[in-house]
């Protein structure tokens, strides 16, 4: 039944439902309960962003595991446990912290299936938050998903709505391959949506058409879907009809939907909060140049964050994040 849930509530409901349906599902991470070994209350935090709040009380310490601050050890443990019959969901508090534990995904989990000749199954989910907007600066604000999309063996999921967050997290946990699940820190409260109460699973590699239009295709990722939506509203007033596509997963990527749309509109703007070099914007632009070049009526425009670390000062950070104004301007450029 459809109720309005926030992104955070939708994620928590998904976690609760997968924990209920499958006894091999465990959740681990730093402070996901909180308060272990401390004199105050248990489940004090429920994760840095409160997503896992309440799970400890329902499922207990054997399934909701707080960890020391040891990302290599517990991300690796999640990967290792996944090859041994569990379906671990590990929370990496900020994707920036992947810097201290990347090996366990990059060289281990992502590679097992291939290195071991198709004999390994590693159903692990790494949940992690990303993105700018919280004034948390260079080490807590990055949108690093292109790093993961680059790695064969990993699946990369980036929900933009509460509905997608729940359905994609359930799919991620039921999936038998390693999945990195990106949650935008600003969306935990900002994204709210009709979310069915029953469990449901959204297939990977299936883009969502946020709106349909004839004039220009905008592909936007994660929080940028909301930015692009605002731009599309502005553009509609100028009689520019935007077709807005949210890929939802960038590995696998729903190439067909993007190409189909560009073949119709002949124009493409890609919006990505990640940096411009080797990012999804460049990747999708290259895809279209390769496979739908003849449909293009104008050069592809990419709207991304600049090639800088994420700055602290609110004035600078606001300038760093792609804006609806920039997206609308890019759309006008390709329409000109």
């Amino acid at each position: 039944m459809a109720r309005i849930l926030t992104y955070r509530e939708a994620l928590r409901e998904a976690l609760r439902q997968v924990l209920e349906e499958d006894p091999t599902v465990i959740v681990m991470g730093e402070d996901i309960a909180g308060g272990l070994g401390a004199p105050g209350e248990l489940d004090a935090w429920g994760g840095d962003m409160g997503v896992t709040k309440g799970l400890f009380g329902q499922f207990g310490p054997e399934r909701i595991l707080d960890t020391p601050i040891s990302e290599s050890a517990y991300i690796g443990a999640a990967v290792g446990a996944a090859t041994c019959g569990l379906r671990p969901i590990a929370e990496l508090m900020f994707v920036d912290f992947m810097g201290v534990c990347f090996d366990q995904l990059l060289n281990q989990g992502a590679k097992f299936r291939y290195m071991f000749g198709g004999k390994a199954k590693t159903p692990v989910v790494i949940r992690t938050q990303y993105g700018a907007g919280y004034r948390t600066a260079a080490q807590h604000s990055q949108s690093l998903y292109p790093l993961f999309a680059h790695v064969p063996g990993l699946k990369v999921v980036i929900p933009s709505t509460a509905y997608d967050a729940k359905g994609l997290l359930i799919s991620s946990v039921r999936d038998d391959d390693p999945v990195v699940f990106f949650e935008h820190k600003v969306l935990y409260d900002e994204a709210r949506d009709h979310v069915p109460e029953a469990p449901y699973a959204i297939p990977f590699g299936e883009a969502n058409f946020v709106r349909e239009g004839e004039d220009v295709t905008i592909v936007a990722i994660g929080r940028m879907v909301h930015v692009a939506k605002r731009a599309a509203d502005k553009l509609a007033q100028e009689k520019i009809e935007v077709e807005l596509i949210d890929p939802r997963t960038i590995s696998p990527l729903d190439e067909d939907s993007i190409l189909e749309s560009v073949e119709k509109t002949g124009r493409l703007v890609v919006v990505d909060e990640a940096h411009p070099r080797c990012g999804m914007a460049a990747d999708i632009a290259a895809l279209v140049a390769d496979k739908a070049f003849k449909s293009l009526k104008a050069p592809v425009k990419c709207v991304t964050a600049p090639h800088t670390p994420v700055p602290f000062s609110p004035v600078l950070e606001d300038a760093f994040i792609p804006s609806d104004m920039a997206v609308a301007a890019a759309a006008r450029t390709v329409m000109a």
């Binding site: 465990i26 595991l65 999640a78 446990a81 090859t83 569990l86």
Partner: peptide, 19 residues
């Protein structure tokens, strides 16, 4: 990867313990 194994072994042991 030198040092790659111990975290994974923690996971294997965790699976044995949990199950």
């Amino acid at each position: 990867i030198v040092g790659g194994g111990p975290p994974l072994a923690c996971g294997a042991a965790l699976a044995a313990k949990t199950l």
